[in-house]
């Protein structure tokens, strides 16, 4: 145990560099997946057949490709097509796109859960499609969508470790580098696990808060 704390004190600063990148990747891909997911979901419920079908197929393509393959594609294949991305850019883009499919389905479920009478009431006072979405549907859908959205945040935090496969030196990769140069596998990976857990706990509490609030009405 004493050895663990000693190692922890020594490796902590290096691992914190990894934590910084983990947070950047998580927040970056969370924002991107949210925006893209909203766009896909809006296309899905737009009532315009071409848009809805395009979005449905996009979601299926994205869902059908493993995140790691998507990352390899962006980082190793895109340069051949003349688009060179930094490892960090590719990681954020890849995770953002991959998760946008799940976000879209979550948002769509929330939007479709709104009573049809709400939309009719909005139409009956002259609201168009966008105003109905903005003033009536989305504010009510948010309550429904928030708990699963919180779960996606937790999954993204953990899946940001996949960025290590394309050389982003985030927490998991930093841990692996230290472990392979010191052979202190147990202590290093225990520390890494504890650090992920520490970051997850506030998110887990947030989800619980969302769920309580959603249950109120």
């Amino acid at each position: 145990m004493k050895g663990f704390w000693h190692d922890a004190a020594e490796f902590f600063p290096i691992l914190m560099n990894g934590v910084a990148l983990t947070i950047v990747v998580t927040i970056g891909s969370l924002l991107l997946s949210t925006v893209l997911g909203l766009v896909w979901a809006m296309m899905r419920v737009s009532g315009i057949k071409a848009l809805s079908m395009l979005s449905a197929s996009l979601i299926n393509v994205i869902r059908g490709i493993p995140i790691i393959v998507l990352l390899f594609y962006l980082y190793f294949v895109m340069p051949d097509l003349g688009v060179t991305l930094s490892a960090l850019q590719a990681a954020i883009l890849g995770l953002g796109i991959a998760y946008s499919a799940y976000q879209a389905e979550n948002f769509r479920a929330g939007i479709e859960a709104i009573d049809k009478g709400q939309i009719e009431a909005a139409q009956s006072i002259g609201m168009g499609w966008w105003l109905t979405m903005r003033r009536v549907v989305l504010p009510q859908a948010v309550r429904i969508v928030l708990p699963p959205y919180g779960n996606v945040m937790i999954m993204m935090l953990k899946d940001s470790s996949q960025a290590s496969t394309i050389t982003v030196a985030e927490l998991a990769l930093q841990g692996k580098l230290i472990a392979s140069s010191t052979f202190k596998n147990t202590n290093v990976f225990t520390l890494v696990a504890l650090m992920y857990l520490t970051m997850s706990i506030p998110l887990i509490l947030l989800v619980r808060h969302f769920e309580k609030r959603a249950g109120k009405r």
């Binding site: 009573d115 009478g117 709400q118 009719e120 009431a121 909005a122 009956s124 006072i125 002259g126 609201m127 105003l131 003033r135 009536v136 504010p139 009510q140 309550r143 009405r217």
Partner: peptide, 28 residues
Amino acid sequence: VSMVFQRFNLFPHRTALENVVEGPLFVK
């Protein structure tokens, strides 16, 4: 031509007053 529905269809996330002023404020 306004409409009143069987099941009211008020906007549950807004107060009574906000429901009433929604159309005049945001549509008109």
